[in-house]
């Protein structure tokens, strides 16, 4: 422990580019994350703009997924994980004692790497969040919510005839869009996506990317991706992580055409990764 924290102290670094914004949805200050004695994230400072798509890229094990899971406190489910620092969602520190993590996760939704529909019907999957948060008063409203959520994900036409069939019978791409529909049915402000296309084929990936693009008009989206092309296609800003440190953040076009930091350049030109 002592050794690791010493390393943090000595290894001060500054994030290249423009990590801070004036008008931000989420603002992250001095965040460190520890798994037991091992430090996974080092002193990250980052603002995430409202209704923007920000992508997090970096080599495997660089901490981008860990960082993403801090933003809706999914790391709470891991016993040995410990987060320090401050993450504000519109002026509220989400690690504050008074914060209800259930409400937080309703405001900051999440889509996972592997599609994980519940072993229930398609309808029940989308209705799940609305039911637990009491978002609708009657069956009619719930039906409407399910329909509109599925429509926004472009899934309605494909599944409207089989809403009561098990969701596990859908194809991988459909399952992932269902998971996105499930997340937006709760009407969150921020959607976190942890490599949402890594288990999908190119056509399904294109559909999901298009969906992300549309959703960005109403939601703030943070996406972790291994694909630099994907980051370039869907996001306005890009953050490059390396060994738990946020190396560089800037507009996506700047990061990919004119990276300022040597590590970023090496990564996007394929020398590390």
């Amino acid at each position: 422990m002592a050794e690791n924290s010493k390393q943090t102290m000595n290894d001060t670094y500054e994030t290249t580019g423009i990590p801070l914004l004036k008008d931000s949805k989420l603002s992250v200050r001095n965040v460190d994350v520890f798994y037991g004695d091992k430090q996974a994230i080092f002193d990250v400072n980052l603002d995430i703009g409202k209704n923007q798509v920000i992508s997090m890229i970096g080599p495997s094990g660089c901490g981008k997924s860990t960082f993403l899971r801090c933003l809706n406190r999914m790391n709470d489910t891991i016993d040995i994980c410990n987060v320090t620092g401050e993450i504000k969602l519109e002026d509220q520190n989400i690690y504050d004692r008074s914060i209800d993590v259930v409400e937080l996760r309703a405001r900051v939704g999440m889509v996972f790497q592997k599609p994980n529909p519940f072993p229930k019907s398609i309808y029940e999957n989308v209705a799940y969040g609305a039911r637990i948060h009491g978002l609708t008063d009657n069956k009619l409203e719930l039906d409407e919510l399910v329909e509109s959520s599925l429509k926004r994900c472009g899934l309605w036409k494909e599944v409207k005839e089989r809403l009561l069939e098990p969701a596990t019978g859908l194809s991988g791409g459909q399952q992932q869009r269902l998971c996105i529909a499930r997340a937006i049915a709760v009407n969150p402000e921020v959607i976190l996506m942890d490599e949402p296309c890594s288990a999908l084929d190119p056509i399904a990936t294109a559909t999901v990317e298009e969906l992300i693009h549309e959703l960005s008009q109403n939601f703030t989206i943070c996406i972790v991706t291994h694909s630099m092309q994907q980051a370039a296609r869907v996001s306005q800003r890009t953050a490059y992580f390396h060994l738990g440190k946020l190396i560089e953040v800037n507009d996506t076009s700047v990061v990919f055409t004119n990276p300022k930091h040597q590590l970023t350049e090496e990564y996007i030109t394929g020398r590390i990764g």
Binding site: N72, T77, R105, G109, F112, K114, N116, G129, V186
Partner: peptide, 14 residues
């Protein structure tokens, strides 16, 4: 699978 728990927690379920 843990992924089902994550999915449910991620939607704000207790």
């Amino acid at each position: 699978p843990q992924s089902l728990r994550d999915g449910s927690f991620g939607l704000g379920a207790t």
